[in-house]
Simulated scan of single mutants.
Amino acid sequence: MVNQTTGNRPGTLLERLVLDETVNRLKNLDVPTDALTWHRFFGALLLVLLVLLFLSGAFMALYYSPAPGSAYDSVDYALFTVPFGDVIKGIHHYGWNLFLAVLGAHLVRGFLVGAYKAPRQLIWVSGVLILLFVPIFIITGDLLPWDQKGYWSTQVRLSIIGSVPLIGDFIVRLIQGGPLTGIVALTRFYVLHILFLPGLLVGLIVIHFHFLKNRGLSDPLSGSDFAAKRVRFFPVVINRWLILFLCVTVMLGLISWYWPAPLGDPADPTDATYVPKPEWWVLFLNQLVTIFKGPWSVIGSVIIPGALAGLFIALPFIDSSPQRHPAHRKAVMLVASILAIAVLVLSILGYMEHFRGSHP
């Protein structure tokens, strides 16, 4: 049969796979030169970290056994017996910490330059949804090693979720599979962590890039002609991303080699005296729960965090003026500064209470 595309010449592999037009479009795709500047660095770094998290997580899943009696031993084996297992586990551990920090910095940068302004409102909304979605990964992943910290941290989080009026108890029983945290809960957390959550996250990122492609990058506040100049996406942008991927992999690998990821003692559900210390990213939320106690706990655990999340999502529609420079958005910058100071103060108080106050 004659190949209609190439005549009598056999089709290339890309033609046989019907990918030739897609590859050609990528080769001809160009992006603003501004995409290569330092303040656009966070987006590329987030993609690097996401790939590393998926790869390291897939490696650890090869050795993991999602059962309370064997989960800890399987993690211990992967960490201390499998060649370079400690490095890969460390890349996963430090990678998500860095991913969350960079994602926050990425959104802060977008806020400062007014990148959420029309017509890019949905780029901002999808980015905030990704930020709010990532902690679910951390919550489900903490339980998987089945050590003391992961087990009791999960108990604290489930108790906070259970305090949500009307639906809290239902959500806890749904994800826990019953009144106790056992094999059903561990299995559900595992399936969520490696299957459903990655799929949903990839979907959110695809939506984010869809809006980004159609609405474009925000113009520089400096008014330079970076946006007018264009460079090829392939190979210029791809090559720079690969260099960044290599550098970040080496950096996280060295950190993991010298400071291996922690693994505590095996979980003991009967040891109610163990008090887990909160992670850095949740210190301010933990302090809110500490401030509002008893019947008022719902304020710190649901109302204030929910209001902040809603405010971030609705920001493009609240601040709808065309002005993007911070000097022309004084009211918004003032409110943001007050919120940032409040989060910082609460985080410092939480650190002093849980990390300094634990020592006499």
Rank of each mutant, 00 (worst) to 15 (best):
A58D: 00
F317E: 03
V289D: 10
N286P: 00
Q176D: 08
L346N: 04
N8P: 01
L195Y: 13
R173C: 01
K213S: 13
D142H: 10
I341M: 14
F196C: 00
G294C: 07
A314Y: 15
V298Y: 12
N214L: 11
V102M: 14
P66F: 05
I303P: 05
R120A: 03
M352P: 01
Q148P: 03
E353Y: 04
G43S: 05
P145L: 10
H39I: 08
W257D: 00
L201Y: 04
G7R: 02
L344M: 11
Q121W: 15
L47R: 06
R16M: 06
M60V: 04
P360V: 02
G43T: 08
W259L: 11
S224L: 06
G300A: 05
I205A: 07
R16K: 13
N97W: 13
G216M: 10
G127N: 12
P262A: 01
P269M: 14
H328C: 03
F233Y: 14
V87R: 07
I238D: 03
A228S: 15
D34T: 04
P68S: 11
I161T: 03
Q4G: 01
A309W: 02
Y72M: 00
L144A: 01
Y351T: 09
V191N: 14
I255P: 07
I138T: 13
I194D: 02
A327K: 06
F99T: 00
F189S: 02
F133I: 00
L79K: 14
F54M: 08
T140L: 09
K149W: 11
F209H: 15
L204D: 05
A44L: 10
W38L: 08
F312S: 09
L349R: 02
V172F: 15
G199N: 07
R40P: 04
G104I: 01
